[in-house]
């Protein structure tokens, strides 16, 4: 049952890792997210160093995105031009993220920063999502249809220069907006090992005002490339991508994802979103407790 991880330098129970990947895959299939925000903390709890955890879970997200991207391409749900702009930003972000990662590693603050970003980001997103899904559940029960949001982009986006047309998204905006958005997500991908879908999707909807038909597909498209780039960045700079760990996680998560997609069809999307919001909040709360609680070991050792 024990398998030695050649990069993480410790042995793990392979069944636990496959099941962990499977559980995350199940959720990611159900909710349409990459699931990296769950993998990284869970691996850290299991005893794998934060660096290896973040580096390796990025490659797991790549795997869980692929079938989604293929499916969305089939039904023409990807704006390739928008996707390419986001990916270019994402690649720049991944590079910046690597520099930031190494700097934080050197100063010893990487763990705190990872945990802080998790708390702030997941806390905010979780609260917003929970509120939105509760409103739509309430509207559903009152019999009324939830009023459709008027689709428009944020005023800040309209002032940016060099406008261009994104036909599939139904937009005429500056490519700088998606470029910056992609860059920001790229930084987060390298730092946290997450795909960033749960930031990207709301931003695409409410900041850029993209057409809803292409939002999920395009977000997955960006996640696929940027997590792959983050894996490459980690492989060449921090050298902490563990291929055995990645394979175990992937076997679990790609299987779980397929089951999750089928499960999701039987549940109302409003309840799904609420469940995802609660889960995101639970992870944020766990991280917050970890920051405020007196740790069992006050000392940490880094080999330099």
């Amino acid at each position: 049952m024990d398998v030695y991880l050649p990069i993480a330098n410790l042995s793990v129970n392979w069944l636990v890792i496959v099941l962990l990947g499977g559980g995350v895959g199940l959720l990611s299939g159900m909710f349409g997210v990459g699931g990296g925000f769950l993998t990284t903390p869970l691996l850290i709890v299991y005893g794998i160093s934060p660096t290896v955890a973040a580096a390796t879970s990025a490659s797991q997200v790549t795997g869980s995105c692929v079938s989604g991207v293929v499916a969305h391409f089939r039904r023409n749900g990807v704006d390739v031009k928008m996707g390419a702009t986001l990916v270019s930003g994402g690649l720049i972000g991944a590079m910046l993220g690597t520099l930031l990662f190494r700097w934080l590693q050197k100063t010893g603050q990487i763990d705190t920063v990872i945990a802080l970003i998790y708390v702030l980001l997941l806390g905010t997103i979780g609260i917003l999502m929970a509120r939105e899904s509760l409103q739509s559940i309430g509207a559903m029960h009152n019999g009324g249809r939830p009023r459709a949001r008027k689709r428009r982009h944020h005023p800040l986006v309209t002032v940016l220069p060099f406008r261009t047309r994104y036909y599939r998204s139904g937009l005429y905006i500056s490519p700088l907006a998606p470029l910056l958005l992609g860059c920001f997500t790229g930084v987060l991908t390298t730092l946290l090992g997450i795909g960033g879908g749960f930031i990207l999707i709301p931003a695409m909807l409410y900041l850029l005002g993209m057409s809803t038909q292409v939002v999920v597909g395009t977000s997955l498209f960006q996640t696929l490339f940027v997590t792959a780039a983050a894996t490459m960045a980690h492989a060449t700079s921090t050298k902490s991508v563990d291929i055995v760990l990645a394979a175990l996680l992937l076997v679990g998560s790609v299987t779980g994802a397929q089951v999750g997609v089928r499960l999701a069809m039987r549940i109302r999307p409003e309840y799904l979103r609420l469940a995802l919001a609660l889960m995101v909040l639970a992870v944020a709360a766990r991280m917050a407790v970890g920051l405020g609680w007196r740790p069992a070991d006050l000392f940490t050792v880094d080999v330099t």
Partner: peptide, 12 residues
């Protein structure tokens, strides 16, 4: 590693 992730995901 990337090829492994893509092929496993696509294969599934």
């Amino acid at each position: 590693v990337v090829a492994l992730s893509v092929s496993l995901g696509w294969g599934a």
